[in-house]
Design a protein around this nucleic acid. Sequence first.
RNA 1: GGUCCAUUCGUCUAUCGGUUAGGACGCCAGAUUUUCAUUCUGGAAAGAGGGGUUCGAUUCCCCUAUGGACUACCA
Length: 503
Amino acid sequence: MSARKVRVRFAPSPTGALHIGGVRTALYNYLFAKQNGGDMILRIEDTDSQRFVPGAEEYIIESLNWLGIKFDEGVGIGGPGAPYRQSERRDIYKKYVQQLLDAGRAYIAFDTPEELDAKRSDVANFQYDASTRMEMRNSLSLSKEEVDALIANGTQYVVRFKIEPNEDVIVNDLIRGEVTINSSILDDKVLYKSADELPTYHLANIVDDHLMDISHVIRGEEWLPSAPLHVLLYRAFDWEAPRFAHLPLLLKPDGNGKLSKRDGDRLGFPVFPLEWKDPKTGDISSGYRESGYLPEAVINFLALLGWNPGNDQEIMSMEDLINMFSLDRCSKSGAKFDYEKGKWFNHKYIQQKDNAELARMFMPILKEHGVEAPAAQVEQIIGLVKERVNFVKELWGQSSFFFIAPVQYDEKTAKKRWKAESPEQMTELCDVLAGIEDFSAENTETVVKGWIEEKGYHLGNVMNAFRLAVVGESKGPHMFDITSLIGKEETIARLKQAVASIK
RNA sequence: GGUCCAUUCGUCUAUCGGUUAGGACGCCAGAUUUUCAUUCUGGAAAGAGGGGUUCGAUUCCCCUAUGGACUACCA
């Protein structure tokens, strides 16, 4: 074990919204870094000018910010390794590509994409490697004069990594153990493209991780097959490689395969942290934030998809997670995404949140419904109904009757709860209520129950009709908590309205 | 096709050779409640198949099956 300082990076490429699986990768990197007193770096890997999507970088930063995943260095922050955007590091990569060329570890290839396509359709399983490279047009097969002439007349070329065949490359993965791959199955990967003067992912990644002194590379399993290539690249440069940890993938909830944007659209749940509008198509994809998720709930839920603390604890704050996280408790197999469990986490976090904070989140929703109410009152109402909701926005459905008198009465409930004697009893109840001085829940309950008992009425019948009249249907918190909040006048008015309307 | 990785209730998972295979979500039932929820209690529900190794395998090894990832001048 090297005594290197822990430094990890999250290195997304700005090709669209940040996928929830990417968020989990960022989270695990963050947890690992913070647990070890290390640094977390944000690097933007925009070496593919073709796939660049405007706004994606800002989206990624805003998403991680919302979730509370903080960076010590990187795009938008700066640091000793700046710039952290790969498109701004052209000169650096050029220098290292040249170094590989000079050392004979890489070569220049002139084959056009068309030529390669033709080759691939001609030869089954064609691979550009030690067995085929001499048949191609490159600096190994061509004379020095030919190569110089081609470059001089501006022919576009790529630089390929010269992989020595038949060598077992061992990747020591922190999650999977030793993974051995024979170098013969690797092709001579393109490292650099003269067309846009940019390296490909593989080269840029290795150079940057080295220059930024990254100690641990924690990334998705889709990178495992190219890990040996990276190991070989570190060797070619004679650099110390970081430790690798390849995380299992997040899978679709139904069927099989990697979770994708489409699954979210199809099954009706977000796969992105924030709402995302595709600048090309104008399509809008929903986000966890806009769907009413609390960032703590998303973090907690995601943390447990592929990792567990080894005990039965499920509710964990970011701080808990930082303390408890460990790479060797990460599972090896992909986790299917269970949206129902995500909802449950949100429910739990809503219960933990104090009413004042929930009220602040609820206010805009109230406004949408044309309701203006004092914060103190909203807080009290939230205290009464929050245990019944999974999302802040559901608060309206559970509490609208506090703000607006029922305009209609649920038919089924009316049929069942509104008895022949109800109109008379409710009219009597109006008088009873009118006579109450202290309209607190406790006192009102005492008085009303006293009246019911005195008259020999059936408690359930009276209360159910009472609820129907005040709420409009058969739901809601304790009746007298409702009446004390809406007040005597409103309660009586609603009773009278009900007597007049319910048949 | 090739290479690599994986495989415990429907789902997320615990188990580091000996357990009535545990927990959670979801589901079902019951209790509580003046309603609806919440909550509580209980229940159904799992080691892919086949070989080994071992006194003993969910656990270690091999094979098969299944799933996944990768196989671009994308990341």
